[in-house]
Design a protein around this nucleic acid. Structure first.
Lengths: 343, 343
DNA sequence: CTGAAAGCGCTTACAG
DNA sequence: CTGAAAGCGCTTACAG
C-alpha cells in the first residue's frame, strides 16, 4: 500500500503538500498540484482512513442505525429502499456506510459502541420510537446526526420526514368522500412517531367530516403483514365499511384476513394502505395508498448529514416531504352515498 | 473521551498493560487485570478504533457487499434477512458491518475503495455473478473474504452456500410425483450461479423421471415479482401444467399473472417457488416452496470470516446448507396420474 | 505556496 | 508479568 510519504518522494514535495492536495486545500500551486495528482493516479493511492481519522481528520464514514422491533423489516421493503437511498448517496459523495441493526441489548453496548466509535463522522437514525436511548445519547454528544422522521422531543435537531399527518388525512378523506362512514384504522406501534402522525391524520379527517372517532375501530398493531391479518380479524365482527391500514404491509395482511373470511374487497369492505410499496400495485385488488419518496428521504438524509459534518456551523435542517394519494381498486365507491351518521 | 493513557494512570500501570487487558492477553496478573477492568468499566472506556487500526491491529470491521442488478432486493426480503443475519452475528462478536450496495460503476471506484480501505478486516460478498470484477480483485489481494454462494472459478475460496441443486431437484421431483408432466421453469438471471444451480436441479429431476427438457418451457427472468408476472404471461400459451419458479418472488408474480388470466391454482396449473420467504405462507394459495436458512447463512458467513481474520492460518471453509421442501397448497394433485409422455 | 515537526491513541516487539 | 519506546499514516498549526 502506497503512503503519503511515497507520493511525496515521487512528486518531489513534502508530505504536507500531498496531504493538502488530497484534501483539496486551495493554496497549492496549480502545477505542483497537477504533478501530485498524476503521481496519485499512477500508483493508485488511497489515503489510509484510520490514519486520517486518528490525525483528527474526518473518516468519511456515516452510521445508519435501524432500531429493532421493526418487524416490518421482513414484510415490506421500506428499509431496503431506505438503505438503498442512503447507500447510493454515500457512494455519490465518496462516503461509506456503517450499518447497525439494533439487537435486544440496544441500550447497553450498541449505544456506546456507536458513540465512541471515533470512526463515524455522523449518524442517521431511522424510525424513531418515542423512547430512544440512542437518540438521547446522541443529543448529548457533539456527533452530528440526522433523524429519519422527526422526534417531538428533538424538534430542533435535523430531520427528514414525510408528511404522514397529511397523507393519512388525504386518504381517509378520500374514503369519506366515497361514502364510507365506519372507517377503521390499523396502526403501527403506539410508541412510534410515525404511528402517532398517521393516526392524527385519520382522526382529523373524521372530525373534519363531522364523524366521531370510534375507539373500537382503532386497533394497534406493528406494521407487519401478520399484524395486519390479526388486527383485521379483530375488526371484522365490528363491521367497519372501510379500513385505513397505516402501512401497505398491514393492508396486505388485512386483505388476506378478509379473503379468508370470504369478504370481498372493495364490494364488502374497502382497504387502503400507506407507503406505496412496489407490491401495493400487485395485491388483489391493487391497493389505494399514499406514496412517500423513501429512497429520496434516505439520500437527502445523507446529504444533510454530510453538510452538517463538513460545515459544523450549518444550522439544523428540517425537511418534510409531501405525500401523494395513489388511487387503485381496493376502495370502490359505496353504492348509495349516505349522509354522515354522526354530527 | 478517555484514552488508554488515562486508564493506565488511574490503575497505576503502564499503557502497555492496559492494552494487554483490553486485548485479552493472558499474560497479565489476575489482580492487576481486575483492577484495570474495574477502571475501564467505571469510566466507560472504549478503545479508539482508528488508533487500533493504525497501530497495526485489526479494525473489527467487516464489509458486506451486495451487487446491484439484484432487482429482487425490492420484492423479497432475501437481503434484509441476510443483512440481519450478518448484522446480529457481528454484534454478537463485537464487530461492525460496513455495507456496500453496488452502484452502476461497480467496477471502477467501489472495488478500489473496498480493497484499499484499510478499515476492513475482511469482506463478505453476496450473490455472485459469474463475472465479478470485485471477486477477481479480492482474490488477488490478501484481504480475507467469504462468498455467499460458491463461485465455480473460486471453488477453493471460503463460501457459505445452500444446496440449490438438490432443493430444486426435490421440489420438481415432487411435482412429477404428483403427476405433472409439462413443468415449466422461470429462472433468475442466467449469469448468476444460483440460477444455474436451480436450473440444474430442475433438469436433473426431469431427466431422472425420464422426462425430456423442453426449452420452450424455460424462461429466463430476474428474481423479481414483475419478472415472474411477465414470464408467466409468456408461458401461458405454451400450456404447462405446473411451473417451478426459481424464487418465491417470481412465484408470486406468476400467481398474479395466472389470476389475471383467470386460471386457477392449483386446479388449472400448479406453481411452486423457492426460498420460503415469510410471505410465501400468505400468497393465494400458499406456496409450496424450498426453505433455506438465509439468516443462518449470513451469521455463519460472519463467523467464518472472523475465523479467517483472527487465525490467518485457518484453511478455507466451505459449507453447503441443506434445503427443505415445504409443501403448501399451490400444487394440488393431478386427478388421473398419467404416465410420462416422453421417454 | 511549502516544509519541518508534533501529535492523534493505540499495538508490539524488546528488555528486563 | 510489566514497562519504555518506536511506529502505524495521516493532519495541522507554525514558520517561513
Amino acid at each position: 500500500m502506497p503512503t503519503l510519504e511515497e507520493i511525496a518522494r515521487l512528486a518531489g514535495v513534502s508530505r504536507s503538500t500531498v496531504s493538502r492536495v488530497v484534501n483539496n486545500d486551495p493554496k497549492v500551486n496549480a502545477v505542483t498540484r497537477q504533478r501530485i495528482l498524476d503521481v496519485i493516479k499512477s500508483i493508485n493511492f488511497q489515503p489510509n482512513a484510520a490514519a486520517r481519522s486518528l490525525a483528527g481528520g474526518k473518516t468519511r464514514i456515516l452510521g445508519l442505525v435501524i432500531p429493532r422491533g421493526v418487524a416490518a423489516i421482513f414484510t415490506d421493503p421500506y428499509f431496503p429502499l431506505l438503505v438503498q437511498g442512503v447507500s447510493s448517496a454515500c457512494n455519490a459523495h465518496d462516503y461509506s456506510v456503517m450499518l447497525w441493526l439494533d439487537e435486544p441489548d440496544y441500550e447497553r453496548r450498541t449505544v456506546r459502541k456507536i458513540l465512541n466509535n471515533e470512526l463515524l463522522d455522523g449518524v442517521i437514525l431511522a424510525s424513531t420510537f418515542l423512547e430512544d436511548p440512542l437518540l438521547d445519547a446522541l443529543a448529548e454528544k457533539k456527533l452530528p446526526f440526522v433523524l429519519i422522521g422527526r422526534h417531538p422531543s428533538y424538534l430542533n435537531a435535523s430531520y427528514i420526514d414525510v408528511d404522514n399527518v397529511n397523507g393519512a388525512f388525504q386518504i381517509v378523506s378520500h374514503l369519506i368522500r366515497l361514502g364510507y362512514r365506519r372507517i377503521a384504522a390499523i396502526t403501527g406501534q403506539a410508541s412510534m412517531v410515525v404511528t402517532m402522525d398517521r393516526l392524527e391524520g385519520y382522526k382529523s379527517a373524521l372530525k373534519g367530516a363531522g364523524l366521531a372517532v370510534d375507539h373500537d375501530l382503532i386497533v394497534e398493531s406493528d406494521f407487519s403483514e401478520d399484524g395486519g391479518y390479526l388486527s383485521m380479524q379483530r375488526l371484522i365482527p365490528r363491521h367497519p365499511d372501510a379500513v385505513f391500514a397505516a402501512s401497505d404491509a398491514l393492508a396486505a395482511g388485512a386483505l388476506r384476513a378478509l379473503r379468508d373470511a370470504r369478504l370481498r374487497v372493495p364490494d364488502d369492505i374497502s382497504v387502503v394502505g400507506f407507503d406505496d410499496m412496489p407490491f401495493a400495485a400487485h395485491t388483489d385488488p391493487p391497493l389505494t395508498t399514499v406514496r412517500q419518496p423513501i429512497n429520496r428521504v434516505g439520500s437527502l438524509a445523507v446529504e444533510t448529514l454530510i453538510d452538517l459534518v463538513e460545515n459544523p456551523d450549518t444550522p439544523p435542517r428540517r425537511i418534510i416531504f409531501p405525500t401523494e394519494l395513489v388511487i387503485r381498486n381496493s376502495c370502490g365507491t359505496v353504492q348509495a352515498p349516505q349522509t354522515a351518521r354522526e354530527a
